[in-house]
Design a protein around this nucleic acid. Structure first.
Lengths: 117, 117
DNA sequence: GAAACATATACCTATATAGGAATATGTCAA
DNA sequence: TTGACATATTCCTATATAGGTATATGTTTC
């Protein structure tokens, strides 16, 4: 089997740095494809292809305006990533190092379940 | 060119659901490989290979103990992901949900006006 | 209609998997 | 040493890119 499709979910879609660059550029507001081509400094077909991937995971929305196509960010598509990764925040937050021990203990009590198996 | 290596950075490493599962399992504490094999329900070589990827991006740390190898989570490796995605949080926060509705309405008016798909 | 412009798609190639099977490496026990 | 156990690595294959180039589609202007 090969790796999952980039369009499988937001995690796969944003694994590509250029696609994160595109989203960052769109954070400033709606933009036509050519703007992104200039900002990224890569070919137009490449940008269009990245935009297609982002569209398939709903990370961007497109709107026609004359001969241009204006792309807009849809940050909500990134929420699963945020939700998943934020639970790990305490891992590096010095402040919570002490709290971790307590929380782990409470969690084990609540679950009332042997931790092994 | 092919896609970037899964070991290129944390973004690529956690794009694979099984690797996120492994990290989630390790969030509960240090575990030997066999535990993860049971939890994930996949073959042992597969788990070892996923662990190798996670090790290369420093998302896990390994420690020898007898014939077992105990893996431990290193959440700090996920910080770049958190830092990147958290800037998009306001996209879906309550306050901006209202704005989204307005924008969507404006968009529909424009699109539904005069032209059919 | 023709030309210019904006964007999307098709086709190509090199490459990096993810999983499965078989095997290698390392450790403990008798 | 031999055997059982725990884990890592190797080899294999099918598949999904990402970028480059050429081309198709759609829009505006003349």
């Amino acid at each position: 089997m090969a790796r999952a499709a980039t369009t499988a979910d937001a995690f796969n879609a944003v694994a590509e740095p250029r696609r994160r660059q595109i989203l960052d550029a769109l954070a400033g507001g709606e933009r036509p494809v050519n703007d992104l081509v200039r900002i990224l400094g890569v070919g137009q077909p490449q940008v269009s292809k990245h935009l297609r991937v982002l569209r398939e995971v709903d990370a961007v929305v497109v709107r026609d305006e004359g001969r241009q196509r204006l792309y807009r960010l849809n940050g909500r598509a990134l929420r699963p990533i945020y939700d998943w990764v934020k639970t790990y925040e305490r891992s590096w937050s010095e402040r919570f190092d002490q709290l971790d021990v307590v929380l782990d203990e409470l969690k084990q009590e609540e679950e009332g379940d042997g931790s092994d198996e």
